[in-house]
Structure formats: C-alpha cells, structure tokens
Design a protein around this nucleic acid. Structure first.
Lengths: 345, 345
DNA sequence: TTAATTATCGGAAACGTTACCGAAAAGCGT
DNA sequence: ACGCTTTTCGGTAACGTTTCCGATAATTAA
C-alpha cells in the first residue's frame, strides 16, 4: 500500500514541497489556482499530513492535555466531552490522560508536556498541593478546573482556576436543609485530605451548622475510606451503611457528590428508610442521573458546560497571550427535587 | 527554560547519540556502566524523549486508536478504562476519539491512522456497514467490539470481533420474562437501523416471542427517535412516556440498554406504575448503576472487563502477527434483580 | 603470537514536515 | 523603457530521534 508524502504530492503537481505545505496550511503566499490543483491531488491520492513530522518541526504544535484525577465521577465525563468539542473547533488536538490515585499529577504533566510538546494543560479534579517552583517547571500555561483550593503559598498569578465556590455553595445546601427544619444532618464526604474539594465542602457544612448554632457532631461526619474511586456510587453505598451502623440519629443526609448520593439512596432504601419522609437526601454537582432516580435527588448544579467552555477558551487565550491568568468563580444552582422535605424536631 | 535533547545528554555524558538511544530503548549492545551513567544524567537533567521525533523515525510506532460511537452509553466508559490500562501495561499509547453520529467511522479511522501512524484500531459501538474494499484501505489490523453484526459481504477473515451474541442473549432475556408469565412485553429500542446492536436485540426479542407463539405487537415496539445519543437515560425516559401514551397494555418492559432502562424506570414511576408489581422492567449491558436504582434492575451482564482485556490483547497479537483474525463470542449473564417479578395473565 | 570473534560504541543518513531565504515573474508608476 | 514593489514559488536547513554500518577495543581461540 502506497502512502503518499508531501514530496509525492509536490512531484505529482509539479511544484515544490513548500508550495504544497503552503496549500495545506492556508498560507497567504499562494496562487488560488495552484492551491486548488494541489488540493485536488491531495484528495485524489488520499494524502494526510504526518502528525509527528508536523509537531516535530512546528514551534507551536496545536495540542493541549487534559489530566483527570478520579474519572469515576460522572461529573467529569460531561466536562471532558465539552472540552473536546471546543478543542476540535479550534483545531487543537486534545490529549486525555487519567491520573491514578497514587500518581503525582505534576510529574505526569511534566512528562506528557515534554513528550508531546503540548502548549497547555487542564487539570480536572484531584487535589492540589505542590510547590510553585515545581509548577513553574511545567513551562506551559495551565488551568485548574474543579480542583479544590490551591494552597496560599502558590501565587495566584501563576495559574488559572475555574470552579464554583465549593465551600460557600456547600454551606448554601446545608442552610437549605436547615431551613427545612433539619438539625441532625449527616454528611458523606470523600477525599477530605488537605485542600481537596471534599474538604472544602465539608468546611461549608461546618460553616452552615455553626452559623445556625447547631453543634457539629463528629459521629454524623462519615468519611469514605476507599482510596481508589472517591466519588463512586459504591463508595456512597458502603459509607452510608457504615454511617447507619453507628446508630446515630439524623434526619438529613448530605453527600458531597451526586455519585455518593446515588449510592446512599440505595443504602437508605435497604435500611427501610424512606426518602424524603424519613430522611432527606442531598447531593452536589448536578449530574443528569439525579433527575432519573426515584426519588430524584436535590443537588447543587454546577454549570458544567459553561465551565468547560470557559476553561478551554481561557487556556487558549493564555497560550495566545491574549490574557493573563484568571480565577473565575461560578454560581452553583440549588436544584430542589424530590429527595428533600421538611423534617427535624 | 532549557529543554535537553538527546544530543545534550550525549554531550554531557561524553558519548554518541546512538549510545544514549540504546540506553533509553533497552538495547542489548551497551555496557551496563555506560547505561547507568546515561540514565543518571537523564534523571538529573529531566530529559524526556520527544514523542514526535520518535514516531517519525520509528517504523513501529507504539500506538493504537480507540474509536467510540455513542459515548453516552456508560457501558463504554468501563470498556475504555480497561483498554487504557492494558495499553499502559504494554507501553502502547492510546488515542481516544469520539465519532459523531453523522461521521463515517472508517473515514475517521483512515485519517487518524495516517496522521498518527497507528498500528491498530479498536472500534467501539456504532453500527457497521462498509465495503470490504474500504476497510482494506485502512491497512492496519482492527477489531470490532460490541458493534452489532457485520454484513455478510465482508469476509470474516478481514477483521476481528469481540462481543456477546446480542440476538441470542436478548432472546434469553425475553424468554426469562415469558417464563415469569408475561406475554404483553414491550420493548424499548434505540438505533435499530441496519445491522446495529439495537436491531439485533430487537430480533432476539422477536425470536423469543415467536418461539413461544406470542404474536408480535408493533404497538409494543418503541423505537427511540433521538439520533444523537441513542443509549441515554433521557432517551429512555422520553420514549417510555411516548410508549405509555399509546395506551397499549403491557406487563413487562424490556429496554435494550441499561441507560434506557433507567430512564424508563423514572417514567414508569411518574405514571404511577410500580416496578415490578405493575410492570416488570429489564435492561441489557450490566452497568454498575443497575445495582443502585430502586428497584435494582434485572439485566444481561456483559463481561466488560474480560471483553476489554481480550480486545486489547487480541489487537496486539494481530499487530505482532502472533495470530490471525478471530471472532470471540462471550456469554452474557442474566442478572436477576428486583425489577422483575411474576406477572401477566 | 596472531587471527578471529565479540562487545561496545560513534557517525551519519534517514523519517516528513515547516520556515526561512532568496529568486523569478508579474505588475506598477514614471 | 526603467526601476520598484508585489506576488508566487523552489531550495534547503532544520526539528529530535532511530537505525544502519562500520570502527575500535577487548576477548577468545588457535
């Protein structure tokens, strides 16, 4: 099987290789007629430029990476899909890489950037606790999306971030539950180490309780144990069972992620507890699934599409030096559904 | 920022570039001491080989592509994750690409193969109706996984396939429902064109009814209309509503994909129908979610992990010419859960 | 000791493309 | 007619790596 190269096309058309190159890359210095002739030949012989050769030669390889930690969370699937679409629009290649729980995201980023000559990175999920020094070594712009708080000792001018105010929105959710009359509110929280999203949402929970003079009961705080897939249904299910076994009474259960809430719903059902009559259940993220469970689950909807679009656009703009690093905070939307009702004392 | 190349490393170590190349690629013709010295320098200076240059020069670029049609189906997510893991094990790069509903999978494959110099392709999902001639042009081995029937006019020696016998297993599911006493069994089917999976499962449904002397009632066959995301919860929900509006009585509903079943569950609930007391509900695929819904959903579990592993291994073996094309058919497992019960007349 | 083999290495030609530089041709004003 | 700019193009040096080929040094066989 004959695979034509740019040289073959040039030879066929009786032009130089640089002219063919100009034709494929929409360069201005070319006669429209010549260009058309070349494009015809390209179609006829099925020529496709070799990506490796291009990236090798080009200074500005058009590619970015998306590094995801915790793919188990369905919330990210939507995010990734949208980011991919945006990349296609801008004719950028997108390198998707999952980061294992035990891997260091910056190390992976570093490797992948050098390997593939990427122009930028999007970090999705995970927590983040790295030195600024190490980050600088990346030497490409990066933006964090839904990635928890970044430690104070890293200059905010050194990176971009896109997220909702997890702590505040979490507090809003708990305040909503309190407003319904609940005082014994249990919380299901995964990956609560350091400055992770889980930790932030837990803090929001504490904020809300505190500001309403409700004492924080450690027995109502249930940390999931599974290290591998933090925000999974299975994790929510098992954790809720452990919570119930403790025997501590509560009238509302707040899971810091929808996937956890779905697992919780099942565990509550098996324990003979009705939602929302016996227990109100709330989640966070706003994944589609919460609309289809029975009962549907009250949640904090993050504007995924918008966030994903802005994430991509922001990164492109930074690459093109059209803008400096930014920190965009979105409002989440409290989506009240069937799983929450008045309750409490 | 200084990015060392292989030349820099060679210069630093006082050796030739080819020696460094031998060191990184575990070639035999190298002194262990030299190798260690080189590896030390590589670590110290943070050298990472440029992937483009490698792939350009190498005849056997270590990369394959996974082309997915219909990412909305959560079943594929697991598949992809496992395939990715297997690739990592074999130190192969995996290029993941989604195929839009209106795109031709072989055209995309062709482009991507040439662009990235891939060694093989895995097709996931979608239907398949292409000429053998066109397939041959791909010029790399490919395997179809869970992709429906391939037309007779394509030689089975020209490709590999990995799947369950969709038609037979679908019939098994329906026979199980019949065994429970159901005769009025509605079916929810998406993407039923040509030789797609949906069509196959629909045929299995017909087979089972026919072999039990039950007349096939067209009004109980509900084809989803949404072109874009065939196997989505939303699609299942909307289709079930349309089915209910028809007013045709039925005691069991069989959705040809779990995602559809989950949407259906919600629609049935909203219509005041209890599952399984009023309506038995069954799905197909065996995604995790079916364990967590209330009630949990009876389904045909496909051995995802095994299938994904075998798909990858098979492709690698074919690339390495260790084996010829194969057609592996797996047994699905009927997972009876809460959503089905005795019923019917 | 000498010849033959082996282990280890360096040089240099590719791989397919882009980007720079300069040249030819064509258009323009005078 | 002339010089000037503009348009259009071809030649060629990179990009960073692998791989081939041959060379040297070290080892073994005779």
């Amino acid at each position: 099987m004959f695979e034509p190269t740019i040289k073959d096309i040039a030879h066929i058309c009786g032009v130089g290789v640089s002219t063919v190159s100009r034709a494929i890359n929409d360069h201005p210095d070319i006669n429209p007629e010549t260009k058309e002739k070349i494009m015809d030949a390209i179609r006829e012989y099925g020529y496709v430029p070799n990506d490796s050769a291009r990236n090798l030669k080009r200074v500005d390889a058009k590619a970015i990476a998306v590094l995801v930690k915790g793919i188990a969370n369905p919330f990210f699937t939507n995010m990734i899909k949208t980011i991919e679409k945006e990349c296609k629009k801008k004719r950028y290649a997108m390198e998707l890489s999952h980061i294992e729980a035990d891997e260091d995201e910056v190390d992976v980023a570093q490797k992948v950037v050098k390997e593939k000559r990427l122009r930028g990175i999007i970090f999705l999920g995970g927590l983040f606790s790295h030195s600024e020094e190490k980050l600088k070594k990346l030497n490409v712009p990066f933006v964090f999306s839904t990635v928890g708080a970044i430690p104070e000792n890293i200059s905010r001018k050194a990176y971009s971030s896109i997220s909702v105010d997890d702590r505040r929105e979490s507090a809003r959710m708990v305040e909503y539950l309190i407003g319904l009359g609940h005082t014994k509110i249990a919380i299901l929280v995964a990956e609560a180490q350091e400055e992770s999203i889980g930790k932030l949402r837990l803090e929001g929970y504490c904020d809300a309780l505190r500001s309403h003079g409700i004492t924080i009961e450690p027995k109502l705080i249930c940390q999931t144990q599974d290290e591998l897939s933090h925000f999974s249904m299975e994790n929510g299910y098992l954790s809720t069972r452990r919570l119930l076994e403790r025997g501590e009474a509560f009238t509302a259960l707040y899971a810091v992620a929808d996937a956890l809430a779905i697992g919780a719903l099942r565990a509550l059902y098996e324990a003979g507890l009705r939602v929302p009559q016996d227990i109100s259940l709330a989640g966070f993220d706003g994944i589609d699934m919460t609309d289809y469970t029975v009962p549907s689950i009250t949640t904090m909807r993050q504007p995924v599409e918008e966030m994903a679009k802005d994430t991509t656009r922001l990164l492109f703009d930074i690459i093109a030096k059209k803008t400096k690093h930014q920190h965009i905070v979105y409002d989440a939307e409290l989506a009240v559904k069937e799983s929450t009702a008045c309750g409490g004392s």
